[in-house]
Amino acid sequence: MNGAALLRLSGITKTYGVGQAAFQALKGIDLAITAGDFVAVMGPSGSGKSTTMNILGCLDTPTSGSYEFQGVHVEQLSRNERALLRRNFLGFVFQGFNLLARTTALENVELPLIYRGEPAASRHATARRALEQVGLQGWEHHTPAELSGGQQQRVAIARAIVTRPAVLLADEPTGNLDTATSREIMDLIGAFNREHGITVLMVTHESEMAAYAKRIIRFVDGRVDTDHRQGEAA
């Protein structure tokens, strides 16, 4: 296969719990993602989609197997090195938004820039631009409680892309949104993939949303079941 994969999982397993209660959520995942791709991950509930995304996002560690990020073995990195990987290369969008409560949209979007040590002036400007890109100009000083679900997810997307990450990981980003809003969110994610070359991995239940992707991977029972490019199979 392509040796220049951006992300590569080989034989990844994940077991939750120990002894009698142990449960193997991932039973050996092999996966390679090339830069600039837009991948939809589908599959029944409990098939291990989120677990895989969390491992890819360095939010969780696999039980065994290897994970290479641009050729670097992530499983050999320290906690701090993985944090720096998240900070500099990864953006995450969650189903439940995960914005800081009682914190303005602008401050939420600024947060990753603060951890990157950006000076205040450029930080404000960059965060404002990101909010503009997701169509939230004028909403900078609203807190999550004052925003609709779709607007909150836009803030979360702005926060994820404000650092121009190499990879955007989205776990059911439209899971809590109505269809019209979901389409707007998908348009946004698609645009970041096309216009900024951000590699996108997105979990979704809906084939309408998966249709935005270039490649669809289907999980069943902790394994990759099917993996095909849009247009090839159709």
Partner: peptide, 19 residues
Amino acid sequence: TERTREIGIRLAIGALERE
């Protein structure tokens, strides 16, 4: 609970534990 989730958010977007 709220603060633990807040810490989770901060860690997820790349904060170091010591930060």
